[in-house]
Design a protein around this nucleic acid. Structure first.
Lengths: 303, 303
DNA sequence: GGCGAGCGATACGTCCAATATATGAAAGTC
DNA sequence: GACTTTCATATATTGGACGTATCGCTCGCC
């Protein structure tokens, strides 16, 4: 039995007439008769009672009619479903992001817009550290992640750079250096630093530390904390200064002021990582397209 | 898209291997590849990721897999359902019977046995008069009916005679003629008769009346009632005698005694009628077979 | 009651498409 | 690097779906 048999059967049942059904199907009447006969032979029973004028469904045919229609409808819907999955209108996308990502306006904007445009895609969000997220993507626990620079280049992972954000200095309230318009890095040489542990983001950590080295000093880290919001709070509490992505200025914490770093300022790159094998996955491509479009409207380097 | 494509797709998805799937399907590997390619072309997306060792389902393929299996299962179940309907194991049978039919042991036995053997067939029962039931069968309101003889031969209706039952005389308690072993019809010439109206069963009515005429008298009908049980009650009440099918002796009404009629005794035929067009209907054939079998075990002429 | 029209079945030829056979290409394995 | 595994491609073959012509049956019409 093939779907063709069901299509022909339904056509004849609807028309109650072989000749007219054949016309509707765009084939001749004899082949239609033959296909119906083949179906009846396979099912072991007549589906139609042949009358001098047209045909009538038998009891078996009546029973089969609804089933046949349902199967045909089901097959069409299944095909349509596949096409929608393939077009990325249906499915899922597991997104990871580092703690600081939500503060850059691009990331929440991308997520919000993706949800709006593709309501059929189940988008899940998860926070983590850059190395943790990279491992999750590699192990197929996530599909994509917004991360800071990776030191080691995982084979099988791809990385699109989204924005190259300036880093700024965070001062506690009343700090003398906060009166300047821009701060040369070397001015921070005697300052106590609050920073995140190297393990949660070696790439950005090294970027900051090596910038200090280039300026001629080694930062004196007095306090470590993983959460970027905690860093700002510790700065506000007066434990020290810090160097954070410019987008952190979004968080208007009482008692903290931010100042740009005098050129050459270190940068905090934000990238999108995903499995190279999935580079053609439609949801991923849609996310990339969306990110590019929104990043263009909201150029990098600014907060 | 044809069911073949789905069958092939499921085979490959199960085996995760074209060559092995082709073996399982009993076809060569190249045609299988081609059919899958054709399916992928029609759906507009790859269903498998080709790996160096075998294949893996894509997201679209995974989505399609369950649908494909359900459709195939559904198609098989629909075919099986049709076969069962055709075999008469599924469906309905609307049975009619005259009031007196339930008293002959054959009829309830047939109904009971049919219900037991074919629980998938919805059997409905309805009582009525012979002409009413015949009209119902003709108008497709019933499928079969147990009736007494029909006078007019409805075209399109068929009639199987089931049993040729003796008629007996019903006497009120203490009637002198009830002392005889058999009663000659002529002895009833002066008796008042209780009988059913001709309209509810002209065939049997005429059989009785013409038997009386043959014996040399016209029955003096003093009371008419349609329900055969009412006739017996009226005889018990002493309103007159009656002539009823021998099977009515099943009803042991207080104050009524039955006596055989001396030969030649009139007969009450019980027949099964059905539409000639439906003579091949499986439920009908099963009912006929069952009736024949049970009638043979319980021969006609006896009560 | 004969006759034409309508309709499905049958007969037969044609052509496409599903299959088989042979081979190629790519990647892994020893 | 030769060999194996596995899917894709190329070409030939065949079966089956379809088209054309015709038959057989039934009904309605004159």
């Amino acid at each position: 039995m093939e779907l063709r048999h069901l299509r022909y059967f339904v056509a004849v049942a609807d028309a109650r007439h072989f000749t007219r059904a054949a016309e509707a199907l765009g084939i001749g009447q004899p082949p239609l008769s033959q296909q119906i006969q083949a179906l009846e032979r396979e099912l072991g029973t007549a589906l139609f009672t042949r009358l001098p004028r047209g045909v009538r469904l038998t009891a078996a045919g009546t029973a089969f009619y609804e089933d046949a229609r349902r199967i045909l409808r089901d097959a069409e819907r299944a095909a349509e479903r596949v096409r929608r999955v393939a077009r990325g209108e249906l499915g899922r996308l597991r997104v990871g992001m580092i703690n600081s990502a939500p503060f850059h306006p691009l990331v929440p904007k991308v997520v919000r817009e993706f949800r709006r445009q593709y309501p059929g895609v189940a988008l899940t969000l998860e926070e983590g550290t850059t190395p943790g997220l990279a491992a999750a993507v590699r192990d197929d626990a996530l599909d994509v992640a917004f991360v800071r620079p990776l030191l080691i280049n995982e084979p099988g992972l791809r990385c699109d750079t989204l924005i190259d954000e300036d880093l700024v200095v965070a001062f506690p309230f009343g700090h003398t250096l906060a009166q300047r318009k821009t701060v040369p890095l070397l001015a921070l040489s005697i300052e106590p630093f609050v920073l995140f542990p190297r393990s949660v983001g070696a790439g950005l950590y090294d970027e900051i530390v090596s910038a200090c080295h280039s300026a001629g000093f080694s930062p004196r880290i007095v306090q470590e904390t993983s959460q970027v919001t905690s860093i700002v709070n510790l700065v506000a509490a007066g434990l020290g200064v810090s160097i954070v992505p410019a987008s952190m200025q979004q968080v208007h914490t009482e008692g903290v002021s931010y100042r740009p770093i005098r050129k050459p300022a270190p940068k905090a790159r934000l990238s999108l990582i995903y499995r190279a094998a999935d580079r053609d996955a439609p949801q991923l491509q849609k996310l990339q397209a969306l990110t590019r479009r929104l990043a263009a409207a909201d150029p990098p380097g600014r907060a």
